[in-house]
Amino acid sequence: MYAFEYHRPTSVKEAAGLIGQVEDPKFLAGGHTLLPTMKLRLAGPANLIDLGQIAELRGIERSGDTLAIGAMTKHAEVANAAEVKEAIPALAELAELIGDPHVRNRGTIGGSVANNDPSADYPAACLALNATIVTNRRKIAADDFFQGIFTTALEDGEIITQIVFPIPTQAAYAKFRNPASRYALVGVFVAKHADGVRVAVTGAGSNGVFRASEIEQALSGNFAAEALDGVTVSEAEMNSDIHADAAYRAHLVSVMAGRAVQTAVARG
């Protein structure tokens, strides 16, 4: 790890203020992507601003037909929260599938969303649930937020404060894990909303998380696994690596979508 200065602000305002004052800053959330990257010397911020002591960034709250989750809420907290299990059980299940128990005890939803790793799980939930990413400056619709691999609408120094999820009628997430890393080789989040079906795919796309329009169309008339019989997704936009080539990923998108729908329907 390269040397850096460490800052431990206790409010969003203080954290945001530091941005203008120090050189080459980086926010530290759960640290489970950033710290390994820094250990391998692939990142070397001069100033690390730890968001871990900011109480206002934590917490889960349901109000009406939305569920708001503070950016520094840990995966394990989302997985175990009664409010989440009640409102959007698919989201709790997704959180339970991230990394391993130790990772879930440190990693945060805000960190995951801000990083937009192409094989991270939360971006699929945000996109399929039509979430709003709330920052210290504005509110960003998920459709606008995710802009390609490790790229988001966040501006320099902008801090995610919470993610607000509309509560769907039915939803589920099916993940096919990369056997080695446990990230999503393919993860499909399906959500039936009052105004339509949204399906988001992570892990598979060569340009990061995306909505699968073929599958959305198939499910919009009939939200059932059978509706996906014969529905294929194009492999043209799929990622290819030593673990899975584009054709296999495209195939898995259909399979995982079917399994997610089955789970969602079975849950009622």
């Binding site: 431990r8 530290l28 640290g31 730890d50 130790h102």
Partner: peptide, 17 residues
């Protein structure tokens, strides 16, 4: 760490303050 299992290789000592 505060009663929860974590990987101490992925936590800074200063974060454990």
């Amino acid at each position: 760490l505060n009663g929860q299992a974590v990987k101490s290789c992925t936590v800074l000592a200063v974060q454990a303050n």
